[in-house]
């Protein structure tokens, strides 16, 4: 699964720590999400999308492997 978290974070001038605090996860989780090493739960994907005022589909996308 690919995501645009890093890009959107840069757009909104948010650090990884800021985002982690907003969605109530550890900073490490944001790092692994951005690297594509972790697929979030639906709840976390929704929370992150809400922070950036986007839909889940706009932030997360499934890529063929």
């Amino acid at each position: 699964m690919k995501n645009r978290i890093k890009e959107l974070r840069a757009r909104d001038n948010l650090t990884q720590l800021d985002l982690a605090l907003k969605v109530d996860v550890r900073r490490e989780t944001i790092v692994f999400l951005e690297k594509g090493k972790y697929n979030p739960s639906l709840k976390l994907a929704y929370d992150i999308s809400q922070i950036f005022n986007q839909t889940i589909e706009e932030v997360f996308s499934f890529a063929d492997e």
């Binding site: 996860v25 900073r27 490490e28 692994f32």
Partner: peptide, 14 residues
Amino acid sequence: KDEKMGLPADDEFS
């Protein structure tokens, strides 16, 4: 230190 900043001790990933 993370907890002092308001981050949770555990989340879904951990």
